[in-house]
Design a protein around this nucleic acid. Structure first.
Lengths: 213, 213
DNA sequence: AGGTGTGAATTTCTTCACAGCA
DNA sequence: TGCTGTGAAGAAATTCACACCT
């Protein structure tokens, strides 16, 4: 079983490798990857080894092979169908992001309660009425839900997703959802990053004020 | 020094505690918090102890005190001034989020290159021309930058931020930024969460297919 | 020399176990 | 009894050290 931190780093490697491939690079070493992404080279090797790829000593890894291996390991060569719920600015930002398929996500429909939005399309995705969500999730066998509604509506929307058989929720709303154990929720979690950054700034300035060291 | 995982959990506690306070709850135990957020009670106590708060045995923690302690520890009682760069859907979603101040962020201006946007206001925040960013960051002593531009413009925008003396960047663009060591970058990192969720779904379905156990 | 691959050591984070208090 | 607070144990992740390959 892959450690979660390793799993979370794989998409970053993938992104970097794709940019290398685009520039025609055929081969890369873990120290190059590590240097660019500011992590430890051994760590990169360990992480990559979970995908089953092998490199050639003295040379490195074949870039296209490596991309394929990571994509396959993540299952991103076979995208998961997903619903986006909430077509405000955030939902639109997500829908507007063209490369979702490269990250394993295939948005098959969007939902909103706003009658002005329902029936329209945004970036080729149909916007449907939110009350049809459970029924359609079940019928279309969609198991991934992206939650982009205001905080006040987040829990009931999650409930509707779960009623529709959705098993994995990516939660962009600033709320802690209560969900049954068989459902996995990940918070997009703007705030924990803010905490790390503001803490860093705080340290930066208090160090300037206090004289010694 | 607080471990980073603990630091990242503090905002979640804060959020939950605020919801308790709103409902008039005066006292809470770590097991209650832990039960709701699905973490270990001891962990919650350890995390909270970094803020310097003490609870009373047999009773728990005073909710308002706890909120104050976390806010103070994070420095969120004294918000950091921030710039948002990029006023597309994502930038608007962030600007539209009213409660940023509760999370220690005070957005003092937004920037874009689109002449149609520049000069307007969105949610009381002025939208300025992106080329003024370095100068204004320096003059207004802004040290926190929120990057919400398309991938193609991300690196140059980050460079402009850094020229302006910005020290901490929250990067919402799907790009790995190259920045000097004295600058801290955090990626909002949609994809690592997607990786965890799709992996979960993969496991879910392959377990159903394979018969044994 | 300059890479990969991996067991072992180390560090970091989490959980346990229990003392102490109201 | 039901909670906090914390040292110690345990688990997990990272980094080191080195064998091996071209």
């Amino acid at each position: 079983m892959i450690p979660e931190p390793s799993l979370r780093r794989l998409p970053t490697y993938l992104h970097y490798l794709r940019s290398l491939a685009m520039r025609g690079r055929e081969v890369v070493s873990t120290s190059t990857i590590a240097g660019f992404l500011k992590v430890d080279p051994t760590q990169v090797r360990k992480d990559l080894s979970y995908t089953g790829i092998v490199g050639t000593p003295r040379v490195g890894y074949d870039v296209p092979d490596l991309i394929t291996a990571i994509e396959h390991y993540l299952g991103w060569d076979n995208t998961s169908d997903a619903f986006i719920v909430g077509v405000g600015h955030l939902g639109k930002a997500l829908l507007g992001y063209e490369h979702l398929a490269e990250y394993g996500v295939n948005v098959v429909a969007a939902f909103d309660i706003d009658p002005d939005q329902v029936g329209k399309r945004f970036r080729d995705v149909e916007i449907l009425s939110a009350d049809r969500l459970p029924e359609l999730a079940r019928r279309m066998k969609v198991h991934l839900g992206i939650l982009a509604v205001p905080a006040a509506a987040a829990q009931e929307t999650a409930d509707a997703m779960i009623r529709g058989g959705i098993l994995a929720i990516l939660n962009f709303s600033p709320t802690t959802l209560t969900c049954p154990d068989h459902v996995m929720v990940r918070d997009a979690d703007f705030y924990s990053n803010v905490a790390v950054l503001t803490q860093f700034l705080k340290g930066h300035f208090s160090r300037k004020e206090t004289t010694t060291w």
